[in-house]
């Protein structure tokens, strides 16, 4: 047989080219709808601004509104002494002092109906590290939320995983039931479920813990169950032949095999919950997020910077700790 190009399959068939064409049409159509051209245009504009070809850009203007106020981060706290009950000048908290500030406020003049600026001299109690202290307290609350949520999810996921592993579930009805619970828990994002948890448990950490805990229980349940199903059958058969009950086989043969994976999942869940614990506060789940949302709404961007730095430090430190823990727990 003579070998020429006709013997080889063409690198692209007509079907491939048609599919690529369809995909490009989709990109153009959908890109218009979600504003991709606008993103490109703004990025182009701001890069011209950065190299000095243009004087202004919309990205620059938008961010400059707050960027000047975001620095320096605020770590001191000020309180109007008139608002402090039982204020006693001779008994101030440690390192704090009283200072006069001009307090600007706007009021509508009842006669002229014009908005007027009123400047008052008000005495403030200043605590130099007061706000930092508050942020630390709040971030500890977030860490606690993440810890409790992870603990709850680990405890809940163990029975869920057992019953949603096909080879350990007592029957197919229980298996399907457990599987649907696991899927259901994963299907609802924390930011949505916390809205319901707030109704059930009230504003604050409890709602956040329940929302995060239930969601990550779904995650862990699924991963644990799949690992149980895929574990090496040999040692399990050996124990069954010795007359061991199902849970003994699971405890002595399956668990040692899947433990490294479990530890990795658990650390991932703690890591994820830590980041999510800062977010769910935005919608009433307690912790640092609630503080962040409050300051953002009051246009106090210096405070916001302090909070963001604190979150960054905590997430960074935990990353380091979990990497060490992982190698210590899993390592040979």
């Amino acid at each position: 047989m003579k070998i020429n190009n006709k013997n080889l399959d063409p690198p692209f068939s007509l079907k491939t080219i048609f599919l690529i064409f369809l995909f490009i049409v989709f990109l153009i159509f959908s890109g218009q709808r979600v504003g991709i051209p606008d993103i490109v245009e703004r990025l182009y504009e701001s890069s011209l601004d950065l190299i000095g070809v243009k004087n202004s850009s919309r990205i620059g203007e938008g961010l400059s509104r707050i960027s000047k106020e975001m620095w320096p981060p605020v770590i001191e706290s000020r309180k109007d002494i008139n608002l402090i009950i039982d204020f006693n000048l001779s008994n101030l908290p440690l390192f704090s002092y009283v200072k006069m500030y001009k307090d600007k406020s706007f009021e509508v003049n009842p006669e002229s109906l014009i908005l007027e600026e009123i400047v008052e001299e008000v005495q403030f109690l200043v605590e130099p590290l007061g706000y930092l202290k508050l942020v630390i307290i709040k971030i500890i609350e977030s860490i606690e939320i993440a810890f409790w949520a992870s603990l709850i999810s680990i405890i809940l996921s163990i029975p869920l995983a057992y019953y949603s592993a096909k080879n350990y579930a007592p029957n197919s009805i229980i298996y399907l039931f457990a599987r649907s619970i696991v899927s259901g828990l994963r299907a609802i994002p924390e930011l949505i479920s916390v809205l319901f948890m707030v109704l059930a448990f009230g504003f604050g950490p409890a709602a956040g813990i329940m929302a995060l805990g239930l969601h990550s229980a779904g995650f862990l349940g699924k991963f644990f169950a799949e690992d149980i199903e895929n574990a090496d059958k040999g040692p399990q058969d050996a124990l069954i032949a010795l007359g061991a009950s199902k849970w003994r086989v699971l405890k002595l043969s399956v668990l040692p095999q899947v433990m490294p994976q479990y530890v990795a999942y658990m650390l991932y869940i703690v890591d994820r919950n830590l980041r999510m614990a800062t977010v769910i506060g935005l919608v009433g789940g307690g912790g640092i997020g609630q503080e962040l949302k409050g300051r953002f709404d009051l246009f106090e961007y210096g405070h916001v910077t302090t909070i963001i730095i604190a979150i960054f430090i905590v997430v960074f430190v935990f990353d380091q700790i979990s990497a060490k823990l992982r190698s210590k727990l899993i390592g040979d």
Partner: peptide, 28 residues
Amino acid sequence: SSISTIYQNFNLVSRSSILINILLGKVA
């Protein structure tokens, strides 16, 4: 209670210790 098995692929729990693996013979 009167029978034990030895396997082609040993069927040991590879991440458990030697001692535990021997003790597994008493699992029931």
